[in-house]
Design a protein around this nucleic acid. Structure first.
Lengths: 118, 118
DNA sequence: TGAATACTGAACCATATAGTTCAGTGTTAT
DNA sequence: ATAACACTGAACTATATGGTTCAGTATTCA
């Protein structure tokens, strides 16, 4: 029985599973933005937007600081390295599987081609 | 107001946000496996495991077929290309932001260094 | 001082996840 | 034919998400 757990990846992949939150990352890629600006951009209440930003913040993808009455949101310095690493390693798993499948299919083809009828 | 939506990425990132499901992908990288084998491996009921596999299947990451009374699960041919692509594009957004920050910090440093005292 | 702005928190709703148990159905092996 | 096996579906639990409204608090500006 295997015991897995990586709350960091849990949180960041969960954060990325929502189109609005992926959009917020796009937006912040163009520069810092307040909750109000983001809420306007995505046609949502301030409270709704605040929750999305909190999810991104808990995932370490976004950082915020309060400047006067405005909360300024920016991309976090942690970046997407861990997520990219997981995806890359496992992308190869998928590819290897299909390489293996190709091999099997080629072997079957050879067995057919050599006319042994087996 | 921006209108985003990409259910494919929604589903696959959501599927990847659970450690058990990421573990299932690891496991299937070593070869096909039945629901029973996976349930054993992760110390879970058959019903629980079936749900995880369904989430992965809806996300297109896993394919299953019923052979007799056994459901055989394997990695899907779609792979993780779309997810890798999103991550790569946005990884650069993060990096560019910090390049920009570096620039600003360098400019500030220069202004300090030139002794204008401004 | 007072109004407007920007956010915050509590409370609520519907739906999804992550898991369980229990009661089946269909398949295989004796 | 019968038992064992592998799965399936319904129903139930607790918690999280994605959104809302409403009632504040803190800041800024006139």
């Amino acid at each position: 029985m295997v015991q897995y757990s990586n709350t960091a990846l849990d949180r960041s992949f969960a954060a990325l599973s929502d189109a609005t939150r992926r959009g917020i990352i796009d937006e912040l890629g163009r520069g810092e933005a307040s909750i109000t600006v983001l809420a306007d951009r995505f046609g949502m209440t301030l409270t709704g937007m605040k929750k999305h930003v909190q999810v991104l913040e808990r995932a370490g993808l976004v950082v915020t600081r309060k400047v006067g009455r405005v909360r300024s949101c920016a991309l976090g310095s942690r970046g997407l390295a861990a997520e990219a690493a997981w995806i890359e390693v496992h992308r190869r798993l998928f590819e290897d599987r299909f390489d293996a499948l190709d091999e099997i299919l080629n072997e079957m083809k050879q067995e057919n081609d050599d006319g042994s009828g087996n």
